[in-house]
Amino acid sequence: MIYFDNSATTKPFPEVIDSFVKVSAEYFGNPSSLHNFGGLAEKLLSQARSQAAKLLSVQQNEIYFTSGGTEGNNLAIKGAAFANNKSGRHLITTTIEHPSVREAIKQLESFGFDVTEVPVDINGRVNVKTIENEIREDTILVSVMHVNNEVGTIQPIREIGQLLKQYPKIKFHVDYVQGVGKVPLNINDCHIDFCTISAHKFHGMKGTGLLFVRDGVKINPLLNGGGQEKNIRSGTENVAGAVSLAKALRLIMEKQQKEFTHLNLISKQLREGLFKIEGVAVNTPETHAAPHIINFSIPHLKSEVFVHALEEKDIYVSTTSACSSKQKTISGTLSAMGMPEERAGSAIRLSLSYTNTVDEVNTVLTAIKQTIEELRKVMK
């Protein structure tokens, strides 16, 4: 099997699974319990929070454990909007955000918030000046993803953060889910107030994530109850999940330092190979793009048919975002980039990890070329 769908989810590292199993089996006490067994669980939770904070170069009290990217994005966006609505009710985002951001903001619109979606260029990148032009007296939140999950475009997060530094009332949320371990992000240097991370995108366990909330920034909880996570996220903490997340974060950061050249190499090889295949149009920009995502189209071929044809060769890729691929076949990101419907409707996403190899890239390129030829014969 060749797995090139790592942006949908990654295979957990064995060490991560081991840590999750060990904590689940041996330290299953409730960290809120008064007895020593609960205290052991609380200690592990605190250590995981400290480790995650150190790896992200933030403070321990700025880390809140969640169930993943969707919860983190909803908590950041809705929590910030409700906590700061006395200062204004205007939100700014882009036309290419993940569904968990788009739908959260759409719900806020139904509650009376005003939303501006700024466009992106042909490379899927937002212009900082465009955001600046949309800022109003009542603007309270800007939400921009770091790495686009469909085409891999890296947004100018630092420049946006520098801009918003001039507007203390406006909070800055960044969906960092696709960038962790592949594209560095200095949370403090970028003046980010809320930052979302999901462990299963970097070889952690599904159902585990964290939200960075800058110290002193107001946010309202979405889940009320026992007051866990400093009253921001009630519910008995997933200690095993938090410990395994910290483990996965440490391991992926180590791989980024040691194996980033390898990832760049196979990404370049894949891109160059795609350019040589007749009928393929590469959608991922050549600059300001993450190394692990390459999006391409094969006009006149349906993307879902192509995905299943590769699957028959034991190669696994995807169409659009994994969170929306079963609902629609036309890429909203490519449409927002100005791509024609024929191209947006035939998009394929290849997403790599540090475990992929040069040989796998060669095999996939050969399979793509063969599959195109096979499908075109059928269509004649």
Rank of each mutant, 00 (worst) to 15 (best):
N148K: 03
I160A: 11
N127A: 11
I160W: 06
H146A: 07
I131E: 04
G161R: 00
D138R: 14
I140G: 04
V118N: 08
G124E: 03
M145F: 04
N133K: 15
T139G: 00
E132T: 07
E132F: 07
I131G: 02
R125Y: 11
E150Y: 00
I122S: 15
R136I: 04
K129N: 06
N123H: 09
G161F: 00
I140C: 09
E150T: 14
G152C: 10
I157A: 12
V118Q: 08
V126F: 14
E137V: 13
I122K: 15
I131S: 01
V147T: 14
E150W: 00
E134W: 10
E134D: 03
H146T: 10
E132I: 05
P156V: 05
G152S: 12
P156W: 04
T153F: 01
E159T: 05
I135C: 02
D121P: 00
V126A: 08
D121A: 03
T139R: 04
S143I: 01
K129W: 01
G161K: 01
V126N: 03
D138Y: 10
T139F: 04
N149D: 14
E137G: 02
N149Q: 12
L141G: 06
N148P: 09
Q155I: 08
T130H: 09
Q155S: 13
G161P: 00
V118G: 10
N149H: 09
N133R: 13
V142P: 09
H146W: 09
N133H: 11
V126C: 11
V128H: 07
N127R: 05
T153S: 15
N148H: 10
I160P: 03
M145H: 09
V120T: 04
I157P: 00
